[in-house]
Design a protein around this nucleic acid. Structure first.
Lengths: 342, 342
DNA sequence: CCTTTTTATGGTAGCGCTACCATATTTCCC
DNA sequence: GGGAAATATGGTAGCGCTACCATAAAAAGG
């Protein structure tokens, strides 16, 4: 006579096994595990003993089906290889590693359509929370987020109109601050060089432009952009392009640190003195900016902290707490280094 | 009178709705979606029409519960910010984006214990396949992989005894080839500099040592390592340490490209000529190695391809095909550049 | 002391899907 | 043309868990 239970399953103990062993109902086991406060001290101990003895672990799939809510955070980022998002994701992972929540990571490849597709897939799982990069969702994506029925945290930016919650900083201000620093250090013909001109890069460019116009220095020929993905090599090429258009440029604000490093290498290869002839500012302040020779001025952003804060806000919302502030601006810092020390 | 169905669910159409609309049994709908070949052309069309009209999408949680198998690939990597693993993960994501499989990503932080913990969590979901970095699992991890009941692909290395399948290359050979290149170019007091000495780095070091000993050049004072995580800044520090121990060194084989870049920057800062006074070789050949000035010789590894191949092998195994080869060596290439062109 | 409210526990009925088996229906073969 | 084998479809019974409601026991209130 074979035991009828676990006909297909791998024979793992189920909640019924625990209930039998502890001499209680299955539902009480379920409660003891999820809401210990609602079960008497006595039974709780008995149940815990049975759980330990059998090595019972709840099946996440059964749980998700029965409760129509999976213990999953959906996370959507535009890139997995870009160090910036890798840091945000790391902050999210670290913050969730001690919680029961798993992470469902999606890569939108900077595509709104792909973001819509992934949000649709993610919604099927009824996630406990959604974390998405940026605030420029398509109308459909925004509707999907609004109707997801779970806390939503947009990250990396600030803005006036979050779907639910928002953690980040102002890319416009970052771009303006970087440019003002170059102006302050005496540079005048300051170029903007940017690859992968996503909305955040566009706002950095807008900040650059605002600073340049305020100083009466703006000239459209100073701006060199491309939709290609950022890379160090691309930074080299873009500086060559920028110099071809405007041989007299004396400063560069780079969209990000990869580009800045490429610009630095190209300057050295072309024997252009940094910071004497050309000043360079990057964005994000990756570790290598500090190590470079000359070290490179950059706008430090708090990417890891953005990930952590996003999770903290989502967890609070799941626990039913309304946040003090739905929009958190974590700011940035200009780190002055040799590349602009004229 | 309220409709009893979708008591808790969000009112999404279920397989029963589709079956009713198409005038068939629920199980036939299920089959039409999963094994179209087993359902007649006629019904398939009817069912497809009903699916389209209702916008039906199967519930992954219900599917996982009923079939005791989730459409999930578990992926375990030691780091999310290390570009090397980010590329592997990108290859995995890209290969799975058109499949029904989701990805469950875990970060072991280079810890065997954490790997065990994550494997235990992942196993609960009964994933369709597991992809793990490295071949140095703890005995418990190895047992968990063997009893997971799904295809397992270890990646990043080659080796004699895979749990199931294996895609990668020989780090020992990579280290030896890099070192032999330096010897061939006339360098003699060649240092090894390495951070985060995980098993793969250890094997690169072993390859270095083999090449040095074969040439009668090995000296333990040439080896500088640290368990700290790799970074460009750390590369600078380690070169200083290495020079303090052995001021006459004339070549450096670096554990990875971040370290190599740090070494390059430190050389420039200390006005040490590269490649004249010191030759530098990195490992992985990140884009920036080509862009650097001077450009840096490195061992190119096929990280994205490793991810793609791992998925291809896993999918084949899921489809019931026994692989031609359980171990795939994707090799590497030494890319010679200015940093060793004495 | 007898209601009314609260607290603690359990039973039942699914969540939406698929494994398993049963039942036609068709095709094949000698 | 009759029986075996293959093909096509459906019914039933769960997968392991939790929402919902019911009930019993204890606490509170007058």
């Amino acid at each position: 006579m074979t035991r009828p239970r676990s006909r297909r399953g791998g024979g793992r103990p189920t909640i019924a096994d625990v209930a039998r062993k502890a001499g209680v109902g299955a539902i009480t086991v379920s409660r003891a595990l999820r809401e210990p406060g609602r079960v008497s001290e006595d039974l709780r101990r008995q149940i815990q003993a049975a759980v330990d003895e059998l090595g019972y672990v709840p099946d996440p799939n059964a749980r998700a089906l029965a409760s129509a809510r999976a213990e999953v955070f959906g996370v959507l980022v535009p890139s997995l290889t870009n160090n910036v998002f890798a840091e945000v994701v790391r902050g999210i992972y670290d913050s969730l590693s001690d919680s029961p929540f798993r992470i469902q990571l999606g890569n939108t490849h900077y595509s709104g359509l792909e973001e819509e597709r992934l949000l649709q897939v993610f919604a099927l799982q009824r996630p406990a929370a959604l974390i998405v990069a940026g605030i420029d969702q398509t109308p459909l994506s925004r509707k999907l987020l609004e109707t997801a029925g779970c806390p939503v945290v947009q990250v990396m930016e600030t803005g006036p109109d979050p779907v639910d919650m928002l953690v980040g900083f102002s890319h416009f201000d970052g771009g303006r601050t970087a440019t003002e620093h170059l102006i302050e250090m005496g540079y005048r013909r300051i170029a903007f060089i940017g690859a992968r001109m996503d909305p955040r890069s566009q706002r950095r460019l807008a900040g650059y432009r605002a600073a340049m116009e305020a100083a009466g220095l703006f000239d459209p020929r100073l701006v060199t952009t491309t939709p290609l993905l950022s890379s160090v090599s691309l930074g080299r090429e873009l500086l060559r392009d920028a110099l071809a258009k405007m041989p007299s440029l004396d400063g560069v604000f780079c969209n990000n640190d990869d580009i800045a490093l490429g610009v630095l290498f190209e300057c050295r290869r072309a024997a252009i003195a940094v910071p004497k002839t050309i000043g360079i500012v990057g964005f994000n302040d990756l570790d290598m900016m500090q190590a470079a020779f000359p070290s490179v001025t950059s706008v430090r952003t708090h990417r890891y902290e953005i990930g952590r804060r996003a999770v903290a806000m989502a967890l609070a919302a799941i626990a039913g707490q309304r946040p003090q502030q739905r929009v958190v601006d974590l700011g940035f810092e200009l780190i002055r280094r040799e590349s602009t020390a004229r």
